[in-house]
Design a protein around this nucleic acid. Structure first.
Ligand SMILES: [Mn+2]
Ligand SMILES: [Mn+2]
Ligand SMILES: [Mn+2]
Ligand SMILES: [Mn+2]
Lengths: 229, 229
DNA sequence: ATTAAAATTTAGACAAATCTAAATATTTTT
DNA sequence: AAAAATATTTAGATTTGTCTAAATTTTAAT
């Protein structure tokens, strides 16, 4: 089965929304795609007819098994192209999302397999998100939100929770990227800001909003103040 | 000004048709795009309104100066992507046209400039066609049609006149590609077939139809039987 | 349990791109 | 120069994707 660019954008958006809330609602999807609820309803009917969706009027919806496979295929294309743009063409990680948003709709399975091989089968995109393989399988990372990282525990930034230009611009300014090793020095309850230190740099503080979009992997064996042995 | 995929396909097709006949006609364009004359007329009005076309009803049409620039931009994208697909991803030169037909519509000037640099600014695509630079300038080759090549004059295949799968499949079977050095041994007036020899291989003959789609550059200083000095 | 608010769907309209069939203009043949 | 053939345009319909406004359903509040 083939899908239009518009259908693909809906399918991918539903896939992403399902990660937070199991059952997706019409308004959520309309907000995500910056369109109107009525347009969403129209597309829901269409996708249900194509057996991509489990959907009953007024009851919310989820992707069918088939729909999930389609979504993973689009995510795979998106993230492989992003990897190519950053690693090969020299784009910054904050410049590639819009372009990948177009490239993900190029329809050529053989192209994607050759691209994947050319890139040596990368497992993560420039934002730390896992790239599904041709069967839809991808690495699961046991990453945690920076908010939940214990004090004085070194951790490596593994992913960011949004691709907005504004966020990526801020991260660039603060010299935080995928792979950055940092630790949390203090947490301030007044505004939930936290003070962090990047390895070999002076500490500085970041807002709660920023901390919430950062995901990290604690570095194995790093010093935990007060821990025994 | 921005253009839809459909508008871009029309603009590029008109550009290509103008190479053979200065003034393009509605039916020619309809045949080229495999659509109906009525659809073409609709689009002609639209493109004229956007000042892309010189067009008066019933009188044929040509691209305006602006239209030519737009066309060259699309051709540039198409050929750069083809070059990438063959040189970097390992596609055969007969497999890339359809994919480039999609990729040429990705809208990101910076992407194309970075791709061009990544490929080291190639001057010709895998079919021997010149790649316009960012200003629309491209190398002009003094290539001639194989039909017009004098006997026993070595020449290098520089371009093919069509990207049809059928043609490229036949060329592959006969081991003819861009860069192949060959000479014409005999011409048969019965069916206008010609006998050629690829360097270091036994001679064989090709049909008139095939010879007409091949363009060659005579090799400088090659032996011309019967020529003086 | 009603009422009010919010979410969702339906109805009807619109723009883009296409098509078929009919009308009109141009070119070619007699 | 008229008739026939061909090319092109117009008229009206269709599909896809979108929108606004109205109707309906669900959820939350009194
Ligand atoms: Mn997209
Ligand atoms: Mn990404
Ligand atoms: Mn195209
Ligand atoms: Mn080409």
């Amino acid at each position: 089965m083939n899908f239009s660019t518009s259908e693909e954008n809906y399918i991918k958006a539903i896939y992403h929304l399902q990660h937070s809330t199991e059952l997706v609602t019409t308004n959520e999807l309309a907000a995500e795609l910056q369109t109107k609820a009525a347009s969403v309803t129209d597309m829901l009917k269409k996708l249900k007819a194509k057996k991509i969706l489990n959907y009953e009027p007024y009851q919310g919806f989820t992707l069918s098994e088939e729909g999930r496979k389609v979504a993973l295929g689009i995510v795979r294309k998106h993230r492989l192209w992003e990897y190519f743009l950053v690693q090969n063409l020299g784009f910054g990680w904050d410049e590639v999302h819009e372009i990948a948003e177009e490239l993900e709709h190029i329809n050529s399975p053989i192209l994607i397999e050759k691209l994947d091989a050319y890139l040596s089968f990368p497992k993560f995109d420039p934002h730390g998100d896992p790239i599904p393989d041709i069967n839809g399988k991808m690495e699961v990372t046991k990453q945690i939100n920076l908010i939940d990282l214990e004090l004085n525990r070194e951790a490596e930034v593994s992913a960011v929770g949004s691709q907005s230009t504004e966020l990526l611009e801020l991260l660039r300014h603060k010299n935080i990227g995928i792979g950055t090793v940092l630790e949390v020095i203090r947490k301030f309850s007044f505004d939930n800001s936290i003070e962090i230190r990047i390895k070999n740099f002076p500490p500085f503080s970041i807002s709660q909003q920023l901390a919430q979009t950062l995901f990290v992997n604690p570095v194995y064996g790093s010093t935990i103040v007060g821990s025994i042995s």
